[in-house]
Simulated assay, not measured.
Amino acid sequence: MSESGFDPGLADPTRAGVFFVTEDDLDPLAAVGRDAGLLSRRIDLSGCDSKGALLLRIATVLDFPQSSGRNWDALSDSLRDLSWLEAPGYVLLFEQAQELRERTEADFDTLLDILDEVSQFWTSNEVPFWSFIALPEEDFPDLQ
């Protein structure tokens, strides 16, 4: 339960997954994640227009080990490990994702697939792993 008395259930791994939100939602979600005792990290995707830039941003914010590769498989493997960021659960807050989606939709879609698979992996281990992707609200109907 959060300090406000409102409990959105972020500590429940069965509810975790990948969700689209607006930029205005990120601060409250970070606070709720903190109140739930989860490790929250904000990943700013502004100006991120390629797979390489995307992977570097995530690796930097999550402090991936030097030995981590810079490809999709390495991203998936690293997100399934996170032993260097031990926590009871995780909240990833992706800011400014619209540019990545517009410039390289295939990479954006691959990221979503990986985040979804990683969330399912953590759920099977009873650990909540949330990804919140900030996009303009008018883009939501196009997303499935």
Rank of each mutant, 00 (worst) to 15 (best):
Asp25Trp: 14
Phe6Gln: 14
Leu45Asn: 03
Leu111Ser: 01
Leu56Ser: 08
Glu23Asn: 13
Leu62Asn: 07
Leu56Glu: 10
Ala74Thr: 08
Val18Met: 00
Ala31Ile: 09
Ala97Gln: 01
Ser76Tyr: 02
Thr60Tyr: 03
Asp49Pro: 07
Pro128Cys: 09
Val32Glu: 09
Leu143Gln: 06
Leu93Asn: 07
Cys48Ile: 09
Glu137Thr: 13
Leu38Val: 04
Glu86Asn: 14
Pro88Thr: 11
Leu62Pro: 05
Thr123Asn: 15
Leu115Met: 02
Leu29Cys: 10
Ser40Tyr: 08
Glu102Arg: 13
Gln120Arg: 14
Gly37Lys: 09
Thr110Pro: 01
Asp107Gln: 14
Asp25Val: 12
Ala36Phe: 03
Ala106Trp: 06
Leu45Met: 05
Leu115Ala: 02
Asp44Ser: 10
Glu126Cys: 15
Gly47Ala: 04
Ala134Cys: 05
Ala16Asn: 04
Val21Gln: 06
Phe19Lys: 05
Ile43Tyr: 01
Leu45Ser: 04
Thr14Pro: 04
Gly89Leu: 06
Glu137Gln: 15
Asp63His: 12
Trp72Phe: 00
Thr104Phe: 14
Glu23Val: 12
Leu112Gln: 07
Ser68Pro: 01
Pro141Ser: 06
Arg103Gly: 15
Leu112Cys: 10
Ala97Gly: 00
Phe6Lys: 14
Asp73Tyr: 11
Phe108Asn: 04
Thr123Trp: 15
Met1Arg: 00
Asp107Cys: 13
Asp49Ala: 15
Ser67Ala: 09
Ser68Trp: 03
Leu29Gln: 12
Leu115Tyr: 01
Leu79Ser: 07
Ser2Gln: 04
Asp27Glu: 15
Ala53Asp: 07
Leu100Tyr: 12
Leu112Thr: 05
Pro8Tyr: 12
Ser78Cys: 09
Pro65Phe: 07
Leu39Tyr: 13
Asp25Phe: 13
Ser4Gln: 13
Asp109Ser: 08
Pro141Leu: 07
Leu111Arg: 02
Ala87Ile: 13
Leu82Cys: 04
Val32His: 09
Phe64Pro: 00
Leu56Asp: 10
Asp109Thr: 06
Ala134Asn: 05
Thr110Lys: 02
Glu138Val: 12
Phe121Met: 06
Gly33Tyr: 12
Leu75Tyr: 01
Asp25Pro: 08
Asp116Ala: 02
Trp84Leu: 11
Gly52Arg: 03
Asp73Lys: 12
Ile58His: 06
Phe108Val: 05
Leu62Lys: 08
Gln98Tyr: 06
Leu143Asn: 03
Leu55Trp: 04
Leu29Lys: 11
Met1Phe: 00
Thr104Asn: 15
Leu39Ala: 08
Val32Gly: 09
Ala106Ile: 07
Ala97Lys: 01
Ala53Pro: 03
